[in-house]
Design a protein around this nucleic acid. Structure first.
Lengths: 195, 195
DNA sequence: GGTAGATATGTCAAGAGTGACATAGTAGAA
DNA sequence: TTCTACTATGTCACTCTTGACATATCTACC
């Protein structure tokens, strides 16, 4: 089964959801480390149902279009449990900004500094948003966060990864921007500029 | 142009390389944040050449098969320079282990602890390897590392991202493993195990 | 002479992921 | 009434990426 399948099973293990709901979730907590569009979700749900990992029933709604609510099966839950403790297949990290950094020596320092300063801000904002959620979780879920058998602990754990990730990313962007800004002008320009 | 194209141009901006060489580089410094197999590299080189971004000449070798050595053109260099300072298109981070963490509450704590302890070790080893390279660079390239107009600075910058990334990843794995290990057994098992 | 391994270049099928296209029900505002 | 926006489900073409298949050169060893 594809990883996306396990992402969906992981969400359905916590609550019954429609394809639309699942797609929304893929922008949130889980979505920050595994995202998918609805065009991927709906076909994957069909495959999961064909494999016997989930079932659905149509729920008629008055104020909205009807929906299909999916539920994880016992087989789906077993499969998910097994997958969770298997070592992940090592997949290469791809960060476009690091690639840009690799060629930064070719660029105009002022433009490069602007780029990395902007990225720094973006990651600091994401970090601040995560920290808010963290404060909320710690206040609201206090006791559960020390209990690894609760789904709240699991949500908190993924959030902590997000915090560490964004903090590190912002720190690195700041270092690059600082380095580029602090640097003396190259020899050619220096002659024209230094007193 | 696809991001892979810029990865290749970034390497060719530093030195002339064959497709084989490029593929090897994709496992190293650049490869840690953008990797590709030779089956992607060769067609991409053909596309780059068709677009006028690179040229090649065949180099005959005595002790090895002949090879095509690629060189970046002025047009390729210009395109690369422009791309470097453009904001990166935001692409979702995908980390399978974080997804596993999201469903960790379903799993056997002992197995989960083993998994995260192993991953912690893997990232600590990668970190140690990066730190070695860092020490070497700082000793060998000392002065250049403060000069953003050098390719050495750029290589050092990507390395620093690697160090921060691995340090954070290892830290998070340790926290998860610790949390799972420190936790008291759920009520059911505790009765059978406590003295 | 055979054969294993590194070097070197390529193709192809299949899967994962994106963005656009398509349809439809419902609510609320203009 | 029309238009917009949100809910809801689906398909399709295209790109990116992987893994397998394919071929060939050259060295070193048995």
């Amino acid at each position: 089964m594809a990883t996306l399948g396990y992402a969906i099973l992981g969400l359905l293990a916590q609550e019954m959801l429609s394809g639309y709901d699942l797609t929304q979730r893929m922008r949130g907590r889980v979505g920050n480390f595994w995202s998918a569009r609805h065009s991927q979700v709906y076909p994957e749900l069909a495959r999961l149902e064909e494999g016997g990992y989930v079932t659905h029933r149509v729920v008629e709604q008055q104020e909205r279009p009807d929906k299909k609510v999916y539920e994880i099966t016992a087989e789906g839950l077993d499969t998910l449990k097994e997958w969770v403790v298997q070592p992940p297949s090592p997949k290469p990290t791809r960060e476009e900004l690091v690639l840009k950094a690799y060629s930064i020596w070719l660029s105009d320092p002022a433009k490069a500094a602007r780029l990395f300063r902007n990225e720094q801000r973006r990651h600091e904002e994401q970090l601040a948003s995560y920290e808010e959620t963290r404060a909320w979780m710690e206040g609201e879920w206090g006791e559960d966060l020390a209990r690894p058998e609760t789904s709240r602990f699991a949500s908190y754990a993924t959030l902590r990864r997000g915090i560490i990730y964004e903090r590190g990313y912002a720190e690195w962007c700041r270092w690059v921007a600082d380095s580029v800004e602090r640097a003396p002008e190259p020899a050619g320009e220096r002659e024209e500029k230094s007193q």
